[in-house]
Design a binder for these strands. Structure first.
Lengths: 335, 335
DNA sequence: TTGTAAGCGTTATCAC
DNA sequence: GTGATAACGCTTACAA
């Protein structure tokens, strides 16, 4: 510790400049001096001081990631994708977990915009568009996963939620279902809203009238799914299938059915979204919609890195393909 | 962007020093000037430059966390505990996911020891003791979760794996089992080894001879558990229960049993370790040993932060209590 | 109570 | 090819 470039320079009998050149692989330095310097660096276990370097170069080679909940496997996969790409390009990653609290998200955003990161990625962000734009306006490149905002400094990647939802609901319809519940997430979540749209489109395409009483909110979490189920039954709703806007809520439905003695899929079919890690381990295994999470993470990181390095013709928005995974929970043909 | 302390100073008609004092809540500055400066800071949306501050103060208020796999819910919970404590103390957290690759772990360790973090936490580290000591020797405070090393700069937190394993195996014995398999993790993992010791102790305490042929390695992962099961059956081993050194391997056992038509728990009882998120959703639900993961994370972060702030009488090693969770997979009394 | 100026450890621009 | 030195933006003695 505490050994710096000047120490190396002295011992190696060269100037600081030369040591710096060696450190940065500047080909101009003579192989012989280079080796000598490297030897001293090795001996002294010298490591350049990050802050000094950052200050001088006005960059940190760090990407800040703000994520709603790293425990949700969907988010974890995206973060992994980001990390893989980042590390392969010599970038570090700072992760902030907001625990689904918008106030905390706001605080982290403030914390990270002190130039301690070169750019930002928001995964499943809850922040109002205005605040995100604010950051972009201040000069930060921002990456968005799962939503999109139009600004020259903002990139985004998401799937076509309308299309995916439509496909899922049509799968249920193909199994003979006509009374299908839609379990929605947060009211202000764009993806939940899009999935609702897909649901409605699927019904329409098959001449099934949309019945608002079959839409319930489950807040994207397990207890919310359970409660929604309870409300549905409480008001005497009749239905044979559920399209849940994510897998978490489906867990609550499973629990309810377990307690109420409702058999899945013979009495109630269900399909979720996200392909959460647990879904394939459930009994019956849960049908779901998979998104290429890793690719999405690595794609957004790649765009940001490229754009920071002067590439300017990148598309602002990327829409990737999701994929329906049919498992046991929706495999029961009523026809 | 690009607005700095001198700009604020000029507009507020004070010196840089005064602005700095305001920023750092130095009570010596007169309330009136303070307010004036704050106003300008607000107007200009000035944010101090992290690297400059870090360089000057020789610290970054950042904790580096190196974790074997953030997707494993055990690790994610620990990281959450670290983050909560860290953020409450104004520290940031950098997370590096090594994907269980020792080479990558080594690389991240190198990457983080450029003073871009103030201290380091290794979660489920695979690195040889020597390399960890190396870092501690260079002056870094190191926190270890799940293992421990003796050095004045190293703190650690883990559970008493021997005791917990013994308790789990005794639970199986109490259900009437005598032919109990032990599924081990990596050969060099201290916790796996300790769990083996607890297993042996439990057998001994109940007069059951230890039979090496009932110990199989499953490498701490799902496919390893499946393969181990296959090997056991292949060599004609007879057993009625399994103690798996983690829940992941138990998943592989479930899969094998499912294919082979072996009923859990009536034909084969099983108990794991970690209380992975999926374990309670399995059918039958998996008995396991829970560790206070959040607390462990926050405890280790707390120790490091305290010790960096000059507290010196902290215990180097903390052992926390784990807890047996009996679920369906081990609830079948053979007696 | 406020201002002046040195210094944190690099890198980059000049000379040589 | 190499060396001297200014500059990055902040904090903190020390002066005033």
């Amino acid at each position: 510790m505490d050994i710096k470039i000047v120490d190396v320079a002295k011992i190696a009998n060269v100037s600081q400049a030369t040591v710096s050149r060696v450190l940065n692989n500047n080909p101009i330095v003579k192989p012989k001096t280079r080796d000598a310097v490297l030897k001293v660096i090795e001996d002294l276990k010298y490591v350049p001081h990050a802050a000094a370097k950052n200050l001088r170069q006005q960059k940190t080679m760090t990407i800040g990631v703000i994520v709603s909940d790293i425990k949700v496997s969907y988010n974890a996969d995206i973060v992994k994708g980001i990390q893989n790409k980042a590390y392969s390009q010599k970038y570090k990653v700072v992760i902030c977990d907001t625990q689904n609290d918008m106030e905390i998200e706001r605080e982290y955003l403030r914390l990270l915009t002190d130039r301690s990161v070169d750019c930002l990625i928001l995964v499943a962000s809850l922040l109002p568009e205005k605040e995100v734009l604010n950051v972009a306006e201040r000069g930060y490149m921002v990456g968005l996963v799962g939503r999109s905002i139009d600004h020259e400094n903002v990139f985004s990647v998401h799937t076509d939620n309308v299309k995916a939802a439509k496909e899922a609901v049509e799968h249920l319809i193909a199994q003979g279902h006509r009374d299908i519940v839609f379990l929605s997430g947060y009211a202000n979540a764009k993806d939940s809203y899009d999935r609702l749209e897909g649901y409605i489109k699927a019904l329409g395409a098959h001449g099934i009238p949309f019945r608002p009483e079959l839409v319930e909110n489950g807040n994207f979490n397990e207890t919310g799914g359970y409660a929604a189920m309870k409300r549905l039954k409480g008001k005497g709703a009749v239905f044979t299938a559920i399209f849940s806007a994510n897998d978490e809520m489906a867990l609550g439905v499973y629990e309810y059915c377990n307690e109420a003695g409702i058999s899945i899929p013979s009495e109630l079919a269900i399909i979720g979204v996200d392909n959460d890690r647990v879904s394939k381990y459930l009994t019956p295994s849960l049908s779901t919609i998979n998104q290429p999470k890793n690719d999405m993470g690595s794609l957004i990181a790649d765009k940001l890195i490229r754009s920071m390095n002067g590439v300017f013709d990148l598309p602002r928005v990327s829409i990737v393909e999701s994929q329906l995974i049919v498992r046991q929970s929706s495999e029961f043909n009523r026809a």
